[in-house]
Amino acid sequence: MSELILHHYPNSPFAEKIRLILGHKKLPWKSVFIPMIMPKPDLTALTGGYRKTPVLQIGADIYCDTALICDVLEHLAPAPTLYPQAVNGAARIVTQWADGSLFTAAMAYNFQPAGVAQVFAGAPAEGVQAFVADRAAMRGGAPRMASSDAAATYKSYLRRLANMLHGQDYLFGTQPCVADFAAYHPLWFTQERTPALAGIFDATPEIQAWMGRMKAIGHGTVGKCSAEEALQTARRTTPAALQGDVFQDEHGIALGSQVVVAADTFGLEPTEGELIAATRTRYTLRRTDERAGTVHVHFPRVGFTLKKAAS
Rank of each mutant, 00 (worst) to 15 (best):
Q85H: 11
A86Y: 01
V87M: 07
V87I: 09
R92M: 15
R92T: 14
A98E: 03
A98D: 02
D99M: 07
G100I: 05
L102N: 02
L102V: 06
T104L: 06
A108T: 02
N110F: 03
N110H: 08
Q112L: 06
P113K: 08
A114W: 00
Q118C: 11
V119P: 09
V119K: 02
A121F: 08
A121L: 11
A123D: 04
E126Y: 03
G127S: 10
V128T: 09
V128C: 03
Q129M: 07
Q129V: 03
A130Y: 00
A130F: 01
F131I: 01
F131C: 04
A133P: 04
M138G: 01
G140E: 01
A142F: 00
D149F: 05
A151K: 15
T153G: 00
T153Y: 03
T153L: 13
S156R: 11
S156D: 08
R159W: 00
R159C: 06
R159L: 13
A162V: 11
N163S: 12
N163D: 15
M164G: 01
G167A: 11
Q168I: 03
Q168H: 12
D169L: 13
F172Q: 05
T174N: 10
Q175C: 09
P176E: 06
P176G: 01
C177P: 04
C177V: 00
V178G: 11
F181Y: 02
F181Q: 03
A182V: 06
P186G: 02
Q191R: 15
E192T: 12
T194G: 08
A196M: 12
A196E: 15
L197Y: 05
G199P: 13
F201W: 05
A203S: 15
T204R: 03
T204V: 14
P205L: 11
P205N: 06
P205I: 08
E206V: 12
E206F: 05
E206N: 12
I207Q: 07
Q208C: 14
A209N: 13
M211S: 10
R213Y: 10
R213M: 09
M214L: 15
A216M: 02
G220T: 11
V222T: 07
K224D: 15
K224V: 12
